[in-house]
Amino acid sequence: MSELYVGLMSGTSLDGVDGVLVDFSGTTLRVLSYSSAPFSNTLTQELLALNSPGPNELHRAALAANALVRVYAQVVADLLEKSCIHHGQVTAIGAHGQTVRHRPQAFDGIGYTLQLNSPALLAELTGIAVIADFRSRDVAAGGQGAPLVPAFHQAVFGRPGQTVATLNIGGISNLTVLGPHQADDVLGFDCGPGNALMDAWCRQHLGQAFDANGAWAATGQVQGDLLAALLREPYFDQPAPKSTGRDLFNMGWLAGKLQDLAPMAPENVQATLTELTASVCATSVTRYALESHELIVCGGGVFNGHLMQRLQAHLPSLQVSSSQAHGLPPLEVEAAAFAWLARKTVLRETSSLKKVTGARGARVLGAIYPA
């Protein structure tokens, strides 16, 4: 069986798709090619709208899933072309889908998590088997269904005898703490907002998808009363395991915090939102990863220089560095994780961690759609 797998990731930032072609035949994984494709503004707006209740949701969600998969297929084709690899040489694609609702353990005690995807269509368009629906088995087993990448972080960044902290800053931020005793010593959870609120505020006030390098936030002043109101969110005090998403951290949530405060300049709100992300991430690190000497950061947040400076300021005793320095560029980490998870599914090996998700035990994740 070939050891070539594709991993695809489209996260809560809603900015597009990252994809990697990975070779697992060696002692360490090797990324053969990387590709990305942006979402059209129409698709971004529809995916964002589907995060909240609305009319005709089933119809709209099905069509959005088809549109999403066409972008996935475009990325896969580009990966194969760059690597001069025929689709028949790839064992499977790990396609996470686009999370639009995440309510584990809610309502009936089991809850649900919903990722828009059309894996059957992706298999048709690419001629490659597709592994999808990674989260639902863990939710069925009583878990959060997220985060799923800590097991991958352990495989890639773990160091025997050392505590390693890895922070992913996508739309939502999540922390992995890799303990010195390897398999039985991994903790992972969602810290809270990552880029989602910053991006949404920037889009609303500047008409731009994100605050490039945090330059706009750097012109503002952190508003203490707003920051205090944001930090009173009960989620931040909940113990791990825990996970969250746009169901909680959205513009409606922010508006509710702003309504009781005096009007403030938009750049000051942006500065405060950036400080919120830095603060909740740093608090998570100090609470759960005190023995670590370094914080490895991946995801789009790495490219926000102002945010990275604020993280370092909150964590003066740690070296805050990009995953690039550890062999995986920041935008490749989560995509590579889903290639790794797909391989685990094909091999019928468990890839969830009970301590991370709170499920009754480790499970084989994912559903297979043959080519």
Rank of each mutant, 00 (worst) to 15 (best):
A339P: 13
P38A: 12
L47D: 03
T277G: 14
D18Y: 11
N41Y: 00
A371Y: 05
M1P: 10
A278N: 15
D138H: 13
A240S: 12
T272S: 13
I172W: 05
V20E: 01
G224M: 08
S322Q: 07
L347M: 09
G7L: 05
G220C: 06
T28C: 08
Q319K: 14
L341D: 02
Y288F: 14
Q319H: 12
R348E: 13
S10K: 01
M198V: 10
P239E: 03
R137W: 00
N213G: 09
A129N: 11
K82L: 09
G214R: 11
G179M: 02
S321I: 04
K82E: 08
T27D: 12
F24A: 07
Q154A: 15
S35I: 01
F39T: 02
F107I: 03
L79C: 08
A95I: 00
N41W: 00
L14T: 04
G361S: 11
S118I: 00
C202F: 01
A217I: 02
P330L: 09
E233T: 11
A37T: 03
L14W: 06
D211L: 10
A129Q: 07
L47T: 00
N66Q: 15
A151T: 04
D237C: 04
L276D: 12
S292P: 14
N195P: 12
G214A: 08
V333C: 09
A335I: 03
F210S: 07
I172D: 05
L116F: 06
T42A: 12
G94V: 02
V17K: 09
K344I: 00
S173T: 02
T219H: 11
F210L: 12
G207M: 06
A141M: 14
G170C: 05
L116R: 11
N41H: 07
A212G: 02
L227N: 11
P119A: 13
S292W: 06
G245Y: 01
D211T: 10
D211S: 10
S136W: 03
F210C: 08
L178F: 08
G170Y: 03
R348S: 11
A337V: 04
A289K: 09
Y5P: 14
L187S: 10
I93K: 14
S40I: 00
R203C: 04
Q204L: 15
I128E: 03
R232T: 08
V356L: 06
G358N: 02
T166I: 11
G11Y: 02
S10W: 04
Q144M: 06
G192S: 04
A129R: 15
A359Q: 05
Q223N: 11
A155H: 15
Y72R: 04
S323V: 02
H306T: 05
A325W: 08
P239F: 01
A95P: 14
T219K: 13
A278S: 15
G207T: 02
M264D: 03
C281Q: 11
G256H: 13
P119K: 15
